[in-house]
Design a protein around this nucleic acid. Structure first.
Lengths: 135, 135
DNA sequence: ATTAAAGTCCACTTTTTTGGTAGGCTATTT
DNA sequence: AAATAGCCTACCAAAAAAGTGGACTTTAAT
C-alpha cells in the first residue's frame, strides 16, 4: 500500500497540474483545497522539489509549481521519491536493490515471480504521468 | 514491499512444498533449515493453517504440512493472508476495499492507474502457485 | 495412567516506520 | 526595513512490524 504521505503527494500534484502555467501556488492553498496538514505538506513538497519534480519561489508571489510539463513526470518517479521501492522484494528492485539473505536469486522461485510483478507494474507506472491524474 | 513476515511465510512454504507428502514437518525443523525465529514462525504457520493453507498434527510425529496440492494454492492468497492488501490504494482493493476520502472514484485519475496496476499484478499472482516456488 | 512431544494461545516487549508539529532561518519582494 | 513565503532542523506520538515468554491442550508411546 502507498503511504498516506504518497497519497498526499499525488493530491498536491493534482492541484499543481490543474494550475500548471498559472504561476506559483501557495503551500497553504494546496493544504486547504486538498485537506492536507500544512506542515506535513511542506516536507512533501520540499522532497518533490529536491527530486527535481517541483520548483519553488520564495517571498511574496512565491509558491510551488511544476518544473516540467505534466506529461513529462512519470507516476513511478513520484512513488520512488516519496514512498521508496515499488517492487515487492528488495532483491528485485531496480532502484533500491538489496540482495536477499538466505536465498539464491538464481534458484529462488519467489524471485522470478516478483520480477514478473515488478515488470508488469513498472510497465504501467512508467507510462503514466501527472497529466493522467487529471484527465 | 512485502513484510519480513510474509517473506518468512514463503520460505517456510517452500520447505513444506519440498516435503510434500512426506508427513508432518516440525516447526523447529523449518525454523532451523530456513533460519526463521522459532516463535515468530509459530504465529505465521498458525495463521496459514487458520486460512486453510496448512494442516497440522499435534503430539509426537506431529508437525505442519500442506493441506492441498502445491499447485492449488495461489501466491496471491498467501500474501493476502499474511500481509493483507495487494493493491496500492485501499479504494482499488478487491478484498480489503475502503472508499477514499477526499477523492471521487469516478473522476480520480490515480484510482484508474492503480486499478490497472492491481489487474496486472493479480494476473500474475493469481496464476502462480506454491509449486512455482520450487520450480 | 503417565510422560514427553508438539502445536495452540495470549499477552507482552522492543524496534522501526509513519504521521505530524514547533519554531527559528533564509531569501525575495515592495 | 518590513512583510511574505519557502527552508531547515529537530522533535514527538501513535501505530505497525518484529520478536519473545510462558502456560495450556492434544496426541502418542510406554
Amino acid at each position: 500500500m502507498l503511504s498516506k504521505k504518497t497519497q498526499y503527494a499525488f493530491r498536491a500534484l493534482t492541484h499543481l497540474v490543474e494550475n500548471y502555467n498559472k504561476g506559483p501556488v501557495l503551500i497553504s492553498e494546496i493544504s486547504k483545497k486538498k485537506k492536507i496538514p500544512l506542515k506535513f505538506l511542506e516536507n512533501i513538497l520540499l522532497e518533490l522539489k529536491k527530486a527535481g519534480i517541483l520548483e519553488s519561489k520564495k517571498g511574496k508571489g512565491g509558491g510551488y509549481y511544476l518544473k516540467n510539463d505534466p506529461a513529462k513526470t512519470h507516476v513511478a518517479n513520484v512513488i520512488r521519491v516519496v514512498d521508496g521501492p515499488i517492487s515487492m522484494l528488495p532483491c528485485v528492485s531496480l532502484y533500491f536493490y538489496q540482495r536477499c539473505k538466505n536465498c539464491d536469486e538464481k534458484t529462488c522461485g519467489l524471485h522470478d515471480i516478483m520480477s514478473d510483478v515488478r515488470d508488469a507494474t513498472l510497465h504501467i507506472l512508467e507510462n503514466r504521468t501527472l497529466k493522467d491524474l487529471v484527465e
